[in-house]
Amino acid sequence: MKNISIQLKLNGVRRTLEVEPSDVLLDVLRDKLGVKSPKVGCDRGDCGSCTVFMNGKTVRSCLVLAVEADGADVVTLEGISKNGPTRLQKEFVKRNSFQCGFCAPGVILSAEEALKKHPRASDEEIKEHIAGNLCRCTGYKPILDAIKTVASGKASK
């Protein structure tokens, strides 16, 4: 077993830790770094529940080796809501867009990415970004409605 020392920025804070080459970022975030918003769903890239931002783009942390995050800027749901819930999160709450909430961290980060790229995202663009984030509770309608409201500029601040 060969440990490798890595350094990353996690939600704005510099962290240094030892990992093994076979450690997966998702497991390291949850078990070693204590960040619990990324969820272990399918563990093979299909469900989106483990989504985090890595260097500004969403990735499936179940498909990233922890060593690959050396030098990276990683932001999880905890990071985007440091100063209170975002506009998007407020809209999700208002519309009851989640039931069990297991998919929520992934859905929210994916939606934030969609809005960052297309501030006035069309319905198609929203769906394209949300595709691959599986929700077993809501039927997606309230999720899409919340994102559309923010994209159309109608969400309350």
Partner: peptide, 8 residues
């Protein structure tokens, strides 16, 4: 696949 996969 999906955006999160295509990003990598």
């Amino acid at each position: 696949a999906s955006v999160g996969v295509r990003n990598r």
